[in-house]
């Protein structure tokens, strides 16, 4: 049992570190691109750095469609680099959970296969259903 835990922690440790490095690469290059170009996604740097919650010109997350990320990256748009970096971070725990599920399956620990499957369901429901649904409703 301890052997399993050691292998699992090793995998998780590597996954987390890789994901953080990848995410930080995109976030930092996004910030650099944004500063060099003086903005991104059609917004000026002033609008991007604004904290005004009521102004429609303030750039906030609901104004950036995830489907535009690939083309935004191709255009070297800083905002989309940051977006991708942030989503890599949001997805990191999902990858960790999946590696935990696989490990529990391999060690035939069915109770924990079930528990981690429930957690994974909660996470995916929040990411793929509740969020987009709220977005459509508003």
């Amino acid at each position: 049992m301890d052997k399993d835990n050691e292998d699992l922690t090793k995998v998780i440790s590597i996954t987390l570190r890789t994901a953080v490095v990848v995410s930080m690469f995109f976030i930092v290059s996004g910030v650099v691109l944004m500063m060099i170009k003086g903005g991104g996604d059609g917004y000026t740097i002033a609008q991007i750095s604004s904290y005004n919650t009521t102004a429609p010109t303030t750039l906030r997350s609901n104004l950036v469609p995830l489907s535009n990320i690939p083309s935004g990256i191709m255009n070297l748009d800083g905002i989309y680099f940051i977006s991708l970096g942030l989503w890599v971070l949001i997805f990191t725990p999902v990858i960790v959970l999946i590696s935990a599920v696989i490990d529990f399956v391999v060690s035939k620990n069915y109770l924990y296969v079930l528990l981690s499957a429930i957690v994974l369901t909660n996470l995916t429901v929040a990411i793929f259903y509740i969020g987009p649904y709220l977005h459509l409703a508003s």
Partner: peptide, 12 residues
């Protein structure tokens, strides 16, 4: 993710 779609995340 719920925060994201609600626009509670400011990139900068």
């Amino acid at each position: 993710s719920i925060y994201w779609y609600n626009g509670f995340i400011q990139f900068y």
